[in-house]
Design a protein around this nucleic acid. Structure first.
Lengths: 196, 196
DNA sequence: TGCTGGTGAACGAACGTTCATTTATATTGC
DNA sequence: GCAATATAAATGAACGTTCGTTCACCAGCA
């Protein structure tokens, strides 16, 4: 008997992640991937059923790591300003340290591939966030608005700042310096928008 | 001599747009595209230099239509609330009527393809928006903040609502009903965040 | 009649996947 | 302890298909 070499699976995943970000799904072929991961094309099929399964697996893996990092030090019973600050800084710092994960998720979530994968929701991630908002409503900290009004205000400015930060060349002619201080400044305005 | 049949070029563009949205860049091949547009593969190369040129061309075309629609009835000297409302409703209505354009742009802008295309900025679009913000600053209507703080708050919630509206299945378990009324409700909170 | 628009077939290259084979190691028999 | 054996990991070459692009030829208007 011989054991599966776990490092190979990781190498394949990481090669896929990097290649997708740099060359897109079209440019990510199994043969190039195998070469990049120092593995035979056939080896990939020992760890993944097929190409689609590999891509889904990378997505689920990245999403899990990303969501886990988002909730560190967070509790849904926190005061609104404090809790939102934890969520924002967790996300901001994580994606600043893992820009490939940011690019990958943006690309995957905006591709038709997402239809076959994203069916499985990450309820362990969503539930605390919904509970957090519900608590803040109840305590009268924030205005009473539908979830689909709350969510875009509470979080999408952060994602836009991350876009600015991570590919600055596209959005602005001069390099905008997105700093943690500016993120917190934006957060204050968001809190102002939402507070009762 | 014989004239070029302009309807063929349009058919190719539209087939590409639809195919990219439904099957991604990977699934959009020249041969399938030709079939869908009722044209020979070779014909595509009469109108476009190659595949990349076709994709860029579709992008620039969609972007131009999109940006043009955004500025209808808008003037950079408008009062802040009024001007922002025009911009929001223009975008909301345009993408509601042209969801394929929304999906295409999201997909293209988050793919590595954008590097080769988006170099050319649409200054005729950006300049009035920047002037509009500058005017509002000067009149003391909104708080004094850097552009990279202003922009995410002013516009990204709208885009997030469009994402909710156009592929609702992914983001929420129950169909959220994003209506114009809820968009305006969100707009009010954004104005509240930004006003001095 | 001349010239350009338009075509279907065909090119070599690259694609996703499989298969026959080899390699490495945990277990067995002594 | 140590070879022999068994078994799964791992491979490189090859499968048939599809890819982007081109080419030799035909169609239709000036």
């Amino acid at each position: 008997m011989r054991q599966k070499d776990e490092t190979k699976e990781i190498a394949i995943r990481e090669a896929a992640l990097e290649m997708i970000v740099k060359e897109g799904f079209k440019g990510t072929s199994m043969q190039k991937l195998a070469k990049k991961a120092n593995v035979s094309p056939a080896t990939i099929y020992l760890y993944f059923k097929n190409r689609e399964d590999l891509l889904n697996s990378v997505y689920l893996d990245v999403r899990q790591q990303t969501n886990e990092a988002a909730l560190v030090g967070f509790d849904s019973s926190m005061p609104f300003r404090e809790g939102l600050k934890v969520l924002w800084l967790n996300r901001y710092r994580y994606f600043t340290e893992h820009p490939l994960h940011f690019f990958f998720l943006e690309q995957f979530l905006n591709s038709p591939l997402v239809e076959s994968a994203a069916r499985m929701e990450d309820k362990a991630f969503k539930r605390p966030l919904q509970q957090f908002a519900a608590n803040a409503f109840k305590r009268g900290e924030i205005v009473k608005i539908p979830f689909e009004v709350y969510w875009p205000i509470a979080f999408s400015p952060l994602y836009q700042m991350l876009r600015f930060r991570l590919h600055p060349n596209i959005h602005l002619e001069k390099q905008p310096v997105i700093t943690e201080q500016k993120v917190l400044q934006t957060l204050e305005l968001v809190v102002k928008a939402l507070q009762a």
